[in-house]
Design a protein around this nucleic acid. Structure first.
Lengths: 255, 255
DNA sequence: TATTAAAATTGGTCAGACCAATTGACCAAT
DNA sequence: ATTGGTCAATTGGTCTGACCAATTTTAATA
């Protein structure tokens, strides 16, 4: 039992909270205009100064835009500081993740095929060679897989691209899916992945943009397939709802 | 000479700013009690309601603690989450960022065009309408721009995709490129962006996948162009080396 | 039809008042 | 000396009503 000093709930906080909920619940959408201060005061049965205080709280919080002579407008909700808490990083399900990677890395591979130099191909070959030389079901298998994907992204010579793809890859290292680490413990899946990597490399080397894209997407789709075969479909598609982000959890397209 | 829309500085903001400075300058230390509302009003030559509004702004901001019957106390200033991660966030140059976004968001738009439902189009329309209704060169312009891009990403119904694109967008909010905030202060660029958003929307609505991709890429390329026109090419392409990721900083393709 | 001017609307600020919680001085009982 | 109660002063919380300034809408005008 924790002793908590009783703090009288101040009006402006209650009102701000209520308005915040109305916004979040969709009663008011971004861009909409709120009732006037006078109307709100009347409707809520309180005075206008109190309404104003609540609105100022919301304004400081960046949720409404107050314009003289015009009205009060809902602002699109911007997630505040995806910030420090690494634990707060929204974690997507493994299937979503693979799907997202297929989209982004497919596009990257396509572009890579257009501009790849012999040195880039050599880098890919090195990554593949390292994978072959590596001890198959080893503790570092995933690192080799990662190295290849990063090598492809690196061809674009754009740090933002490389970083995004790296981060996406690294997200599968999280408490929810450590089981995934055993993905490569199966020798068959390892060899299959290796073959698909080579196919990607060849397409890029041949400057076949659409082929590279197809190969990359194919690779990641197969990964998903192999993965689900190994673990069954009982894996949650999304282990946890977003704590903050408001892009609803509607899963429309069943990936 | 920069055109700045004359926004009547509201009293409570000026007062809050002044008090903030007094706190930061050490005139008031953490734990100290501020003068009473009445005194402040008298000393500042304004009314008490205005003082209250300023204090509420500071309270929402977590800088003071208001206790009924007792007084207003300075709170120890907690830097809001420059946290471990924030400082470690690798920062890419604005041009790289725009290029990366063109790649990824282009792919997303392409896919979105294939599967967009009438509801999705409605969401895009809402984002565009909000942008139109918004005050043009306003402090929240960027939020509306962001809302549209997120709405496009959201069509895929994949949280990993949405999050990736959101994060990429948010990276332009960083100490290095705060100047970029003034990007939309130019009415022309704002209108151009709006037009391009509509074009993207139309392509997606028409289920024209390649057209959507082209429109999105075009939009982001134009953004880059407009940006560089406004600020000149003297902007660094990459202000800092990566602290963590080791994918070398070689800038092969001069984007 | 386009421009301009007046009127209505809406947020911004103010003054003064009363209520409620807190504090501290003072006093009584232990 | 300590504890608890009482009361008045202080301080924030809220309200009423008013007027100003910016904006938007409407009407009048060229």
């Amino acid at each position: 039992m924790k002793i908590e000093p009783i703090r009288p709930r101040r009006l402006y906080r209650q009102i701000a909270e209520q308005l915040r909920q109305l916004i979040d619940s969709g009663t008011f959408a971004a861009g909409d205009r709120l009732p006037t201060e006078r109307e709100l005061a009347l409707k809520l049965g309180i005075s206008r100064p109190s309404v104003r205080e609540a609105l100022i709280a919301l304004e400081v919080d960046g949720r409404v835009d107050i314009r003289v002579g015009s009205g009060i407008y809902i602002l699109p909700h911007v997630i505040d500081t995806p910030g420090p808490a690494d634990a707060a990083i929204p974690i997507a399900g493994p299937f979503e993740l693979l799907k997202a990677r297929a989209l982004f890395e497919g596009a990257a591979a396509e572009e890579a095929a257009r501009i790849a130099t012999p040195q880039d191909i050599a880098a890919l070959d090195a990554a593949i060679a390292a994978m072959q030389a590596a001890e198959h079901p080893g503790p570092h298998s995933m690192a080799f897989d990662r190295a290849f994907h990063v090598a492809v992204a690196d061809i674009l010579g754009n740090d933002a691209v490389t970083r995004t793809i790296s981060d996406l890859f690294d997200q599968r290292i999280n408490p929810y899916f450590t089981q995934l680490a055993s993905y490569f413990e199966n020798a068959d899946t390892w060899e299959a992945a290796l073959r698909e990597h080579m196919q990607i490399r060849d397409s890029i080397a041949a400057k076949d943009a659409t082929g590279a894209r197809r190969a990359m997407r194919n690779h990641l789709q197969n990964s998903q397939k192999r993965f689900s075969e190994n673990f069954g479909e009982d894996m949650p598609s999304s282990p946890g709802a977003y704590p903050k982000n408001n892009h609803a959890n509607r899963r429309k397209h069943p990936c």
